[in-house]
Amino acid sequence: MGKVILEVNELTTKYITRFGEDVYAVDHVSLKVEEGKSLGIAGESGCGKSTLALSLMGYYFPPLHYTSGEIIIDGHNITGMKPDDVRKSILGTEIAYIPQAAMNALNPTQKVINIIEDVVQAHDPSKKKKDIYDLARAGFEKLGLPADVLQRYPVELSGGMKQRTVIAISVILGPKVLIADEPSSALDVTSQKMVIKMLRNLMDNGMIKAMIFITHELPLLYNVTTDIMVMYAGQIVEKGAAKETVFDPLHPYAKGLMGSIIVPEAGLRGVKLTAIPGVPPNLKKPPSGCRFAERCKYVHPECKASSVGVTTVGDNRTYRCILSEKELREVYKNAN
């Protein structure tokens, strides 16, 4: 087992809305990311992927609140750290975070190099512009981006180039972990592929030690990450090696999700897509039993009775269902 870069134990966080209601968006999430590994997070809209990303950096600001659990980054327990300290000593240097739709948030009146100067000087005010330029140029070159992008304004860049620029900037301070939230969803296939290639490069040439990649596009995750976890209504319902999770899912929700993948590959036209009927529960009052029970084809009365724990299979695989691995396989076999 490699060195653990990021460890999260039983993390629970919630939003408190303007009306004082609690929204339980991340519920008892545990995960570990080892050096050289990348973790993909999949799940339908609103299941808490982005909230988990914010939560596991320890970066809390209203309406998001920490409830319980532990966060350990490269051996340092950062649980309970103040947001200001997180900003100073974690963001950018330990963990780089690329929020959803980040590429459209670049300041349009600054050249790329000026944006980089701000990022670097926020961390080290004494750093000279010349040194920052050299650092940026080297970083861009290593990632295959033309150095003249540094002198351009964001609006002058195509969508794909903008996104790759955002990624290059985010790793300028040498973070250990990169968290990328839907970095390629708004791009066309060719630009998307360039972004993916860049993320893989970052890992391959050791510019980052570990990565978390969030997207609902399963074929993408499958091609980028070593491990995949599936979230449903704030909880992890399945986690394991990418290949197992995609081709041999255990949890009924993961099973459904994998059945809805469409790729332009022969034979697919004959396959019936599985649409999971119903909608996820309201996270203001999540059910006390299994959160997926309401939509599950294989539901038992016990599923709704009390909360369902995590079952471990082998050494690296977990799922959250009352059925055993054997029972689940049986159920799926009979369903076909």
């Binding site: 339908e44 809209s45 609902h216 596009e217 999700l257 809805s260 649409a275 999971i276």
Partner: peptide, 14 residues
């Protein structure tokens, strides 16, 4: 369907 996840996409296509 580009903004939505695969599962909801299947529902919408249906």
């Amino acid at each position: 369907t580009s903004m939505i996840d695969a599962c909801s996409r299947a529902t919408i296509l249906d």
